[in-house]
Simulated assay, not measured.
Amino acid sequence: MGAVACLAAGGMVVRLAAAFTLAWTHSVQKSEWQEDWRATPSGLVLEEVRVQGSGAGMEPPEGAVLRNGFYVARPALPPQTEVLLRRSGATADWRICMDGTCREMGTLLPPEADPVRLTLCE
């Protein structure tokens, strides 16, 4: 069986897929940010980033190309052992997209669970 990602918070662990998208909307700019991740034996690999517009801390990554209204880039980031996701409650929740379906993180973990750790499943 291949590597799979997990979300963990408040004593709960939720298994994701090997490939998934993290998405959120900037609270001020209202721009969409999407990241495609893949779980590998080496860690979590950020494969592609898509940013809708720029400004207020939402600048597209270096080398990004505008495609279908999004700046698209393939960041040179080494595999990550953990990604920490914070939830303030003052903004819309993270969205997790797998197999063409997106869900708010609050449907997977309690809405007040913060921080949330994204890791490889054990």
Rank of each mutant, 00 (worst) to 15 (best):
G2F: 04
L7G: 12
A8G: 11
A9Y: 01
G10E: 14
G11W: 02
M12H: 15
V13P: 01
V14D: 04
L16S: 05
L16E: 03
A17Q: 11
A17G: 13
A17I: 00
A23H: 01
W24Y: 14
T25K: 00
W33P: 13
W33L: 06
Q34H: 12
W37E: 11
W37M: 11
R38I: 13
V45T: 06
E47S: 14
E48M: 05
V49M: 12
R50A: 13
V51L: 10
Q52M: 15
G53L: 03
G53I: 08
P60R: 05
G63P: 14
G69D: 02
F70C: 08
F70A: 01
Y71H: 15
Y71T: 05
A73M: 06
R74G: 08
R74Q: 10
L77G: 10
P79L: 05
Q80T: 08
V83D: 01
V83P: 00
V83H: 02
L85A: 07
R86K: 15
D93L: 06
R95A: 02
R95D: 00
R95G: 01
T101Y: 08
C102Y: 02
R103W: 14
R103S: 12
M105S: 11
T107V: 15
L108N: 09
L109T: 00
P110A: 08
P111W: 03
A113I: 13
P115F: 05
P115E: 01
C121A: 03
E122H: 09
